[in-house]
């Protein structure tokens, strides 16, 4: 657990504190085990029914001209779990996100959240139901301050209606409560010192944090993160990972798109793999790397499998033996083999 700074701190402390921290850790990890446990015995097959599905898709297709960007027959997303959505570039992951959040309209198909049909809703209506998203290209509102960005995320604001905006007495108390909530979140995301800066002055990683914190201001039930770790340095990735795990522990359903397999393996309870618009595999993270369809999708059907340590040793030994053989002779080709050997 090099990721968790609190765990590192507790190593230095006394044994009692370690025990307490471990207990707390177990306590915090409990909901994760719930989702994992619920999904443990499911078969690793596409379209499998989940014990407690929050989001259900049926026959969703979206074509752009002749290109079928998304074609999903049936997919269920477990409530309270972290579902990773992976796939090569152009697999239709972002299009699927756009469809789910109302930013794009499908050609056919229906999907629902908590049994409510989402198919005909516009983006803001989807968001009001508690399904919020972030964007692949971070959308920080540059010329608003960090705090204003946060306050924008709050739902049901009385002062956002034109006429009531003119009477500050109506919305001032709510605004104050929202500001306190925003400051709490900013503190959690370590952005509180930046609250009065323009969001446009933040670094790329800070913008990702801000976007996630802003989404949390709306008290969402489902959080959809489109490549939350893209272009973020490793230290910040770890802190973002921690925040994503926190969401699950607060009972939210998280769906995220990610390319970094280490990240996916680390945090997801369930992984859905897309390629060419279709769901080609789903299952717990450990099942995915063994899945032939996934390997084929990522690397092409004809590929060289990566070498294990033993295989590598064996190849190395073979090469060394060959070199030894060549050196005993006086062939000009020995130089070529030698250079290959050293470069390995």
């Amino acid at each position: 657990m090099p990721a968790d700074p609190s765990a590192q701190g507790s190593h230095a402390a006394g044994s009692e504190e370690i025990a307490a921290a471990r207990q707390a850790g177990q306590h915090r990890a409990a909901p994760q085990r719930l989702a994992q446990a619920a999904l443990k015995d499911l078969p690793w097959e596409v379209g499998v029914a989940k014990p407690d599905a929050a989001v259900v898709l049926d026959g969703v297709t979206r074509t752009f001209g002749g290109l079928t960007a998304v074609s999903v027959d049936h997919l269920e997303i477990q409530r309270g779990g972290i579902t990773g959505l992976i796939g090569p570039n152009g697999a239709g992951k972002t299009t699927l996100f756009n469809l789910l959040t109302g930013f794009d309209q499908p050609n056919t198909g229906t999907w629902s959240f908590d049994g409510r049909d989402l198919g005909k809703l516009s983006p803001h209506q989807v968001a009001r139901l508690g399904v919020v998203r972030t964007f692949q290209l971070t959308k920080a509102l540059s010329r608003l301050t960090v705090l204003q960005n946060m306050l924008l995320g709050a739902q049901g604001q009385r002062g956002e209606s034109f006429l009531r905006a003119l009477l500050p007495g109506i919305w001032r108390a709510q605004e104050k409560a929202n500001t306190e909530k925003a400051m709490d979140l900013l503190q959690r995301f370590k952005l509180d010192a930046k609250k009065d800066d323009f969001a446009g002055t933040l670094s790329g990683g800070q913008r990702k944090l801000l976007e996630m914190a802003r989404a949390l201001m709306s008290d969402p039930k489902v959080v959809m993160l489109d490549e939350p770790m893209a272009g973020v340095n490793p230290a910040l990735t770890q802190s973002l990972l921690g925040h994503v795990k926190d969401l699950r522990e607060e009972g939210m359903t998280v769906i995220f798109v990610e390319h970094d397999m280490d990240v996916v393996r680390d945090i997801s309870d369930w992984v859905v793999v897309m390629a060419a618009g279709k769901v080609i595999a789903e299952g717990p993270p450990e099942s995915i790397s063994q899945n032939q369809a996934v390997v084929d999708a990522y690397l092409g059907a004809h590929h060289d499998a990566p070498l294990t340590v033993e295989e590598e040793d064996r190849v190395l030994a073979e090469v060394q033996a060959e070199i030894a053989l060549e050196e005993s002779g006086t062939s000009s080709s020995s130089g070529v083999i030698n250079s290959e050997g050293t470069s390995r």
Partner: peptide
């Protein structure tokens, strides 16, 4: 003002 900066972000936060 947020709409001036980025409409889609504002939509995603539940504003019409």
């Amino acid at each position: 003002k947020a709409i001036r900066e980025d409409e889609d972000a504002v939509r995603a936060l539940g504003k019409n």
